[in-house]
Every structure is written in C-alpha cells, then in structure tokens.
Nucleic acid binder design. Structure first.
Lengths: 219, 219
DNA sequence: AAAATTATTTAGACAAATCTAAATAATTTT
DNA sequence: AAAATTATTTAGATTTGTCTAAATAATTTT
C-alpha cells in the first residue's frame, strides 16, 4: 500500500495515542497533529477505506492489524534515523526528533535494514524508546515509572516521554540524559517539586511537571 | 524561502537542463519531469513569483542567481546522500539515485554539513559528478568527453551521464565503473558500435547509444 | 508568404489535504 | 430528565499540483 506523508503521520499518531484497545478520539488526534477535528474526520474516512483503522462515527479510532504493522515500520525508521544522527553525526538528543520526522518517510525496506545493520541493530533510540525490528517486534521495555511516581531512592534514567526541544534542552543543561543515575532527596507536596541529587554534583530541584516525563527504574 | 518538494524538483530539473544561458523550453522540462507542458507553465508562474526563475511567455525559463543557489543546495544534498549510501551502506551505484531523490528533500543545512564532514567532504559522487560545497562551489570537472567522441586510445571512465537503473546495471554487468581503464579497439561506422578492451578481460562491443553516456578522459 | 506543423498557454476540472461555520450527537451539569 | 456544554460530523470553500481540451503563438515546410 502506498501512503502519503500525511497518512503516515496520522497512522503514527494513532499508534502513539492508542493505549491498549482504547479508541483514540477525534479531538486528541487533532491536538496531537496540530490540526482541526474536522480534518481528522476526513482523514479517518480515508484510512478506514484503506483498512488501516477501524472507525465508526462518534466511536473513535483504533488501528487494524495492518495499521499497526504500518505504524511500527514508521516508528522503526524514525528511531533508527535518530540513532544515526546521534551516533554518527554527533547531534544531541533534542535536535534529532524533527529531522527524523522527515527522514522516516523514506519508505525503502532495504535502506531501513541496511541502516539498522550499519548502526549495529540497536534496540533503543537516543531517548530510550525501543526500536521495532524488521518484523515489527520490539523489546519489552523493562519495568519503569515516571520520576514523580518512583518509590526507590537510587534510580537510573531510562527514557523521556516528551520529546519537545524545550524539555530535552532543559535536561541537557541540567546534565540529565539516558543512563544518568540519581537519588531522590525529597518530594515536596507543598509546591509539587522534587529535589534530586546526581553523583559529583549539588542537588537540584525540578517540577513534578518535568518529572512526569522522565522515566526511571531502580538501579 | 520555503519550497515544496514539487518546486524543488522543478528547480533541480531546470538546473540540469540549462546549459550556459540557453533558456529551458516548456516541453523539455515536461519530458524531464514526466509531466505535461501545461503543468510546467503553471509552475513556471509560481517560480517566477518566488523569483527563482526568469520567465516570459513563449520565451522559456532560466534560473535567477537565487534559483541557481537553491539548485546547487539540492544537488549537494542529493550527491552527498548517494555517497553515504554507497560508502557506508554498501549500495551499488545504480540503486542510489532513487533513494537520494527522496533524501535530498530534507532541507537542513546542519544535517547536510554534518553528513559531508562525516563522509570526509567528498568532491565527487559515485557516478563521478562533482559535489557543490556549502557555498555552492563545485570542483571544475577535468576535461572529459563522451566515449563515442574520444580520440585518445587509453582512457579512464570519469562519469556516467544517464543514471537510469537499466544503464547502470548494464555497465555493472560489463565490469565498467568509475575509474575503469579501457582502450578503444575499433569504432565501426557500419553499425554504430564501439569495440573496447579492459585490462585482463576479452574485448567487448557496446553501442554508440551507450557510449554517449560514458564520460572519459585520457589516462 | 501562405500553409502546415509544433510548441506553448489558457480555461476549466479534479484529487488531496486542509479549513471555517453550521448542524448534530454525546456527555455532563443542574 | 431537561438544559448546558463539549465532541464530532457535515457542507462548502481553499490551496497545491496536476490534468485534458481548446486556443493561440512560433516555427518549419512548401
């Protein structure tokens, strides 16, 4: 099936928003894609026609098996290009998302597989997200929670869920990246802030807002 | 200026067809882009509006200085990606053109320059075509002629002007690639064929049609 | 130089992807 | 359960890039 770039972006966004088998709403998708609900309705009809999604008026959207397969291919390409940009071209993690958004639309399986091989078949991208293999299989992420939910004291950063340039640059500035080890010093209900401490550095305070997007596991 | 992929393809095609300051005709451009003359007229108006081309009804098309600059950026990206695919991902030269057609539209100067650096700032692509540098400057290709025009006997292949998969695969099969040294054994007017001989191989016969697309210089 | 041919442009249409404004359905509040 | 609010869809318009068919300009042939 030959999809346009717009169609690919919809499929990818639906995949991202669909937790389990909860249907994705028109509004949520419009917000995610920075477009209008009316446009989402239009596209939903097309993608249903192409059997990539299940869609009934007013009932929301879910991917079909075929749609999920397509989504995983796009995600695979996106994350492999991110690895390439960081590992080979020395970009920093907050710069690569936008570039990968463009590169992911080059739909050549041969290119994708060669790129993967060239990079040593990585299983996670620079933000800690798992990379689907050529068959769409993904390593199950190890149990992780967001930093604001963590009970353990000594933690390691495994992923970042919000890939906005702003957040990633902020974390960069604070010295927080994948694999960074840290301890929770205190959690202040008073102003919803968390005090953390990294090795060889003074402790620092971040908001719960930020902590929600930092995934960690006990070390 | 933000150009669409279609606009970029027109600018690139005009650059390719424009020899010296001869204007490019509507028909030639339509043929090159596999579209209709009427569509070319439509797009010509848009590109004139954007000051990328000079265009007067019935008088043909030439690039402005701005248009030439844009074209060179696209050509630079195209040829760098071709180098990447051949040098790093082990594609053969006939496979890379189509992929580079897509990759060339990722318009990030930072990416382009990092890629160039990563490849060792190459000055020619896998087909022997020169790569413009970040300022649009290109190494002047050394004097070369097409194989069917060559007078010298001992020659080296410097470029291939037609990048169709068919021709490149044909040359591959015959063992002809960039840098290949050969001798002209005979040129038969009778059936417009040329007999050539490469080192350590029996002589072989190719048509003038093919020879026209093989660029050579005396060795 | 008139006729025939070829090249180019115009006019009007279409598909894809989007939008706004209005209508309708679903959900929440009172 | 009626009213108010929110979510979604429909209808109709817009932009981009393309097309066909017809009209016009340029060039070539006779």
């Amino acid at each position: 099936m030959n999809l346009s770039i717009a169609e690919e972006n919809y499929v990818k966004a639906i995949y991202k928003l669909q937790e389990g088998d909860t249907a994705v709403t028109t509004n949520a998708l419009a917000y995610e894609l920075d477009t209008k609900p009316a446009s989402v309705t239009d596209m939903a009809k097309k993608l249903k026609e192409k059997q990539l999604i299940d869609y009934e008026k007013y009932k929301g959207i879910t991917l079909t098996a075929e749609g999920r397969k397509t989504a995983l291919q796009i995600v695979r390409r996106h994350r492999l290009w991110e690895c390439f940009l960081v590992d080979k071209l020395a970009f920093s993690w907050e710069e690569v998302h936008e570039l990968a958004e463009e590169l992911e639309h080059v739909r050549s399986e041969k290119l994708t597989n060669r790129l993967s091989e060239y990079l040593g078949n990585p299983t996670v991208d620079p933000h800690g997200d798992p990379i689907p293999d050529a068959h769409g299989r993904m390593a199950k992420p190890r149990p992780q929670t967001s930093l604001d939910q963590a009970n353990a004291k000594r933690l390691v950063v495994t992923a970042v869920t919000d890939q906005s340039v702003a957040l990633l640059a902020f974390l960069n500035a604070k010295g927080i990246r994948l694999g960074t080890q840290l301890e929770i010093v205190a959690h202040y209900e008073y102003d919803n802030s968390i005090e953390i401490k990294m090795k060889h550095a003074p402790s620092l305070t971040i908001s719960e807002q930020v902590a929600k997007n930092i995934m960690v596991r006990p070390v």
